[in-house]
């Protein structure tokens, strides 16, 4: 298979904490795959296993069908941004990239290219210790791009970025996918990925709880609910409830109906002579879909000791 990440049945225990509990998913080329889940869901651990940094107790992670340590010139196969703060403060940003480049047989010219690409050229010769978190994220992106890899994995790249930076990062991720690269981006905030990801892997408690396109996820979360605006709220509720629908009053003149398609709602209300000004299919936000999916997994947040183990 070309330019993919395959994660199969990863299990990993840190002491008493089960960090990964059968994590499995695939990242395809040409799209941005969002890797979302609450803190402690196992996202970072999964990425570290993919990069050969942590050894799983069971399962495997392959890049282009091979485990990471078997890759020749690994940075030209897969670029990674794990922890943007992992820098030697006394070294300049450019020199940080230079040693990485030398480890892959790349030259200083390539370093200057990726610095330009990441929008960091002007700060390249300053010590990395003085960088803002946003600049460190850009340096991390530059490092990931050094080997011009077909696969990228980025852990929380939006962290610490200003609004301008977030907009830039979204466009950058989209352009990477448009070039045919496989991009895996983790985030604990779904909103960051709202307009960026094509595909979502939602993780919770060390395993995948949803793996679908963004459109499918929203549709699933939306269900077949219908939004109704009417001045005859009581009559409408009576009519629709008699027809077998579940009706909830969501406002002074709005109702949410589930169990009946919109056409049937219109037909029933017209038949009964109940006035209405609007009937529409309800569309859930990605955030709502995510919250619904991770409701159980979020319980992690009440157990900080397990998060600390991450």
């Amino acid at each position: 298979m070309e330019a993919t990440i395959e994660v199969t049945g990863l299990r990993k225990r840190f002491g008493a904490t089960l960090a990964l509990d059968g994590m499995s998913f695939t990242v395809q080329p040409g799209q941005v795959t969002g890797f979302v889940g609450p803190n402690g869901a196992g996202k970072t651990t999964t990425m570290r296993v993919i990069l050969g940094l942590d050894a799983p107790d069971a399962g495997r992670a392959l890049i282009d069908g091979r485990p990471y340590p078997k890759l020749q010139r690994p940075l030209s196969r897969i670029g990674a941004l794990l922890d943007a703060a992992a820098l030697q403060p006394g070294r300049t940003g450019r020199n940080h990239l230079l040693w990485l480049a030398h480890s892959q047989g790349l030259s200083g010219r390539r370093v200057d290219e990726v610095l330009e690409q990441a929008g960091l050229a002007s700060a390249a010769r300053r010590k990395a210790g003085g960088y803002s978190l946003g600049m460190r994220q850009r340096l991390g992106i530059a490092a990931a791009m050094l080997g011009d890899p077909p696969v990228l994995i980025l852990d929380e790249p939006f962290n610490g970025m200003d609004p301008e930076g977030i907009v830039w990062m979204r466009g950058f991720l989209r352009s990477l996918a448009a070039e045919g690269r496989a991009v895996l981006v983790s985030s604990h905030l779904m909103s960051e990925l709202q307009d960026t990801a094509d595909h979502l892997v939602v993780a919770g408690r060390g395993k995948v709880i949803a793996d679908a396109t963004v459109a499918d996820l929203i549709a699933a979360a939306s269900g077949d609910r219908v939004l109704l605006r009417t001045s005859g709220r009581t009559e409408a509720m009576t009519v629709l409830a008699h027809a077998g629908a579940t009706v909830a009053a969501t406002g002074r003149d709005t109702l949410t109906i589930s169990g009946l398609p919109a056409e049937r709602v219109v037909a029933l209300l017209s038949e009964a002579g109940v006035p209405f000004s609007e009937v529409s299919a309800h569309r859930a936000s990605l955030e709502e879909a995510y919250m619904e999916l991770t409701r159980d997994a979020v319980e992690f947040r009440a157990r900080p000791a397990e998060e600390a183990a991450q």
Binding site: E2, A3, Q28, P29, G30, Q31, Q72, R73, S76, H102, S103, Q104, G105, L106, G147, D148, P149, P150, A177, A178, E179, G180, R181, A182, D198
Partner: peptide, 23 residues
């Protein structure tokens, strides 16, 4: 948005084997 319309990315960089001297 569909992945099927995009062909996988191929780096123009030439592939070389790892060498200890590079490290």
């Amino acid at each position: 948005m569909s992945a099927t319309t995009i062909s996988p990315y191929r780096s123009p960089q030439r592939a070389e084997n790892d060498s200890f001297l590079r490290l």
